[in-house]
Design a protein around this nucleic acid. Structure first.
Lengths: 254, 254
DNA sequence: CGGATGGTTGAAACCGTTCAAAATCTGTGG
DNA sequence: CCACAGATTTTGAACGGTTTCAACCATCCG
């Protein structure tokens, strides 16, 4: 499982919504075969421009974001390996957000029409793609709740819980830890907090033993405890099997 | 145009994404024929429950929201006449949000399968439904930006601009005014502000002549000026023709 | 070694919250 | 048509979470 995730994270992600015929997976891998490697801070899609390809992230962290007049950035979604963007946005003439890499990435760009046609020929994939779109929208809503109604402490805790579940779903977590190559600026642009406050809040979370975050690696000693502190309920992520394993069952959290 | 909006707001809304064959509109009206009248504060869909119908609002204001443990409410979308909910959410077993009325409403509940099948038989409608889903997602993203990155003053101004454009799109605005039967609590739950601060911010906006809001009616004397103050750019709403009229062109704003 | 990036710390200022109460509006029944 | 109750809006004052500004430190890497 872990092996396949590195060669085709996209298929692995789609499988987290339900089993897929292995033939489908191989055909899908062919679609994303010609991937490109990019450094950090590269833009793949620009806000307000037409865009008829789907961006599939195979390695690294990318994000969807909007830039405001004052130069502020609001990140509205993370794209981790297996995630894609563009099945919807951009259909009506132009994208309402930019897509950029946060870390060095490997990405494939598939013409949207080709991917949709592929989904029609392989119904299980088509269904999984629709599921992915729905799950993305649910995450977006949860982020609105996060930014609107939770304290800095909960926002960051919640984000780290979400990432644990998502990283597990693609086989990129080891136990209760995962690599998180983001800066505190990135976390601030995601949670709508200043870097300074992100830093202090992180120290608080560390001080209480809820997280360890050392040189790009996060460990969550007791996911159930962090989830409770951050009011995190993984239901919105729509892959319950993985989610239950990650935080729902205290027996698995040590 | 105004006449039809009252009899079939749903069709009118879908038309705002592009012209539709009139036969389609009539058939669509039949689908939503058996509507029900509801009072304020009625729940139509509960969070975390399966839901296989699409809610179509024909009259009144409804909303999508999430309730947190502390009793706080975050509204994540408004459903004004013509808007629908449930084409996506609920597909994966359960809804990630509740739907409730904010004011007395007339709503139709259409089985999702029936609506999707209808969209297949009437391609223009199917396309319009997809457009509506995409536009909804863009609005959700904009709300995240609004709550995350804008001041109270801008948040509320932005919301009122958005509503002007949306109300115009369904023919429910008169000039630069529209009926807004929401309480300041509702505005607070939308913009993630306390009622007290909503009240003071509203007074500020009124004091500067950017809005008038008297007994459930909002007037925006100079939409372009309010849009500038609130950093509002209607592009994300995806019906540019209406949007340009509403705030893009100063000559029309008086 | 030196420059750049990212992380950490302190202090002051601010935006928005909370609590508490008063004023106003709205609808309803007598 | 009035009286009353509940909902909504408004006001005041104190508090506090978060931001901003301004340094300083650590680490990485050529």
């Amino acid at each position: 499982m872990q092996d396949r995730s590195s060669t085709n994270a996209f298929g692995h992600k789609l499988e987290s919504f339900g089993a897929l015929p292995s033939g489908d997976l191989e055909a899908l891998a062919a679609l994303t075969a010609d991937a490109q490697s990019l450094g950090a801070d590269c833009d793949l899609v620009h806000e307000g421009e037409p865009c008829d390809t789907v961006v599939v992230v195979l390695r690294g962290f990318a994000c969807r974001y909007r830039l405001l007049a004052g130069g502020q950035r609001q990140i509205t979604a993370y794209l981790i390996p297996g995630d894609c963007f563009g099945l919807q946005d951009g259909v009506l003439g132009m994208s309402t957000s930019a897509i950029g890499t946060l870390t060095p990435c490997t990405v494939a760009q598939v013409p949207r029409d080709a991917l949709l046609a592929f989904g029609r020929r392989h119904p299980a994939i088509g269904q999984a793609l629709r599921s992915a779109v729905i799950a993305d929208e649910a995450v977006l809503q949860e982020w609105l709740v996060n930014v609107g109604r939770r304290t800095a402490y909960q926002r960051i805790g919640h984000l780290l819980c979400e990432l644990l579940v998502r990283m597990r779903a693609i086989g990129a977590a080891q136990g209760n830890g995962y690599d998180l190559p983001l800066t505190q600026y990135d976390i601030g642009d995601t949670t709508a907090l200043s870097v300074v406050h992100v830093n202090r809040t992180l120290q608080q979370l560390r001080g209480e033993g809820l997280i360890r975050w050392d040189r790009r690696r996060v460990e969550i000693p007791d996911p159930a405890r962090l989830a409770a502190a951050a009011m995190f309920d993984p239901a919105y992520l729509h892959f319950e099997h993985v989610a239950a394993e990650a935080v729902g069952d205290r027996r698995l959290s040590a």
